[in-house]
Structure formats: C-alpha cells, structure tokens
Design a protein around this nucleic acid. Structure first.
Length: 275
DNA sequence: AGCCAGGACAAGT
DNA sequence: ACTTGTCATGGC
C-alpha cells in the first residue's frame, strides 16, 4: 500500500482469506474496490483501507483500532478451514468452496444489516449500494475523509416519506421508516436479540414490516453471525434446483455452517463480480 | 428496450 | 398450503 499518511497495521493471516471475495459476495454494500485485493470501506463509524499482499493484511489504521474493530469485523478469529471442510459435502459444494475459499462471513452491525436487507428486496446489488450510499451521505455523520457513518435508528425514526424521496428506494421507504421507529424505541432491542436463540430472533425480526423469511435470514447470518442460517434468494433457488432438485434441505445437508455454504454457492452462482 | 433484481404482502384459489 | 398480482426503480 502506498504511503497514505497515517498509521498502518500489518497482520499475518493464518487461513485462506480474500478481500475481493469477501466484499463482493453480496453480504455487504459499503466497500469500494480500489484494486486487486485492495478495498476501502466504512463500518462501525470507522473508515479503513485494506490491502492483502500474500499472507499479509495491511490496514490503514492503528493496531488498537484494528484489534477492536476490523479483526472481529473480518471474523479473523474463526477457523474457516474447518467450515470449508464441513460444508464440502459433495462434488458441487466442494467446487463452490474451492472457488470461494477466501470468503468470510463478516460480523456486521445488526442495525445496518437490517436496513440494508430491507432495501435489498427485489433490487440488483449495484442499486442497493447506490441507495445505501445516498442514505449515508444524506443522513449519516461525516467522518472527515469524505465518508459517512451509517445513520442510526433515532436519526431515521423522525423522518417522513418525502424525506426519503432522494434515496429513490421506492416502495421500501415505509418499511425503512417503520423499522427505524421500532428500533429507536427499543422494540425489538437489537442488543437483547444477540443473546436470543436463532428461532426467537427470527420470529422477532419477522414482525417488522418489510422483513420476510429471506431478509430475516440475511440479517441473522450477516448481522448476528448465525452461521447455521441459509437464506434462499432467486440465485440460490436456481442453483439448488439445478444441482439437487426441488425438495433439497440445506440445513440437513450443511448443518451448523449452512449459512457459510450458502455464501460459497451464491458466490459461484453469480460468478465473479466486483462492486 | 426490455428483463429482472439477494422479496414482502395481501388476496385470491 | 400453494399461486398470483402488485409495489418503485433502475442496472445491465
């Protein structure tokens, strides 16, 4: 990484890991690709540039910020070799795992994940990214380097439909507002949900307008790191039908890491892409 | 140019 | 319990 004029942290990676795969497999929407294995993005109110060179991960932040924010975010303490082995149950998934071996399931903020996947429904990924960017630019707080925080629920809860018109998120705007109002007054309490079992948390999410089974599954997997949850979207549906037939049970096949399996399959089904 | 997108929801069979 | 129409907006 070129000299960026601020502190850098180097981390030696102990497992297969790819920024390109991790940030372009559809689980997050606020990362920009600057070059091969080089990305810049914002999470938890911090912006960072990451570059991977061989087994070395360089981060444009202090060691303490990396340890407290980016190491957990990137899920660097999880053994993905064991996960990859566990979900390579046949030739097809083994190939998916091989192609996407560097994918990690990010530990994203539950609120940001909730909003992101409410907005995701029936949209292309590039368009989701645009809507979220406009949301942050308009209602987030400037961080200082041209980046913006993800606006919190309290900020959005006081808005009305026409305030959201510039986002051009269409019929999802009222979903976003009612979700913000619900979270802002603590019902449901996202922190409390971290302690709940997955079924309870799922039921809680499904009460929110605009959150159905697929969106709830994405929130559980990406926002609460429930690796056993297997979201089914149109891509996954097509892939499963093509390789297994109509009544395939992902949970039975992939068990505790079904969600990770889903990401490897999704990555392969959509082909390589960057955004 | 039109197809369809990491769907949800209500209203029909 | 399944199928269908509708919702708003573009990226490709």
């Amino acid at each position: 990484m070129a000299d960026l004029g601020f502190e850098l942290t180097d981390v030696l990676l102990s497992d297969e890991f790819s920024l390109d795969q991790t940030f372009s497999c559809g689980q997050c929407f606020r990362w920009e690709r600057l070059g091969t294995e080089c990305w810049r993005g914002t999470a938890f109110g911090k912006t960072v540039t990451l570059q991977k060179e061989g087994d070395l991960l360089k981060a444009s932040c202090s060691p303490s910020e990396f340890a407290s924010v980016w190491k957990p975010y990137l899920d660097l303490d999880t053994d993905y070799r064991a996960i990859r082995d566990a979900v390579s149950v046949d030739a097809y998934t083994a190939q998916c795992v091989k192609d996407g071996a560097g994918i990690r399931i990010l530990r994203q903020d539950p609120w940001e994940t909730l909003v992101s996947f409410i907005l995701s429904q029936c949209n292309h990924i590039p368009r989701i990214r645009g809507i979220i960017q406009r949301l942050c630019e308009r209602f987030g707080e400037p961080i200082g380097d041209g980046s913006f925080t993800f606006p919190d629920a309290q900020k959005l809860a006081v808005l009305c439909a026409e305030d959201l018109a510039p986002l051009r998120c269409g019929y999802r705007a009222p979903y976003l507002l009612s979700a913000a109002q619900a979270i802002a007054c603590g019902a449901p309490d996202l922190d409390e949900m971290k302690k709940q079992d997955t079924q309870t948390a799922r039921s809680t999410l499904l009460v929110l307008p605009g959150v159905g089974i697929k969106v709830a599954s994405c929130i559980l997997l990406f926002g609460f790191h429930r690796l056993e949850v297997f979201p089914v979207d149109t891509w996954i549906q097509k892939a499963l039908r093509a390789h297994y037939g109509p009544d395939f049970d992902p949970s039975a096949a992939f068990g505790a890491y079904a969600g990770a399996a889903q990401q490897y399959i999704f990555y392969k089904a959509r082909g390589k892409f960057f955004g």
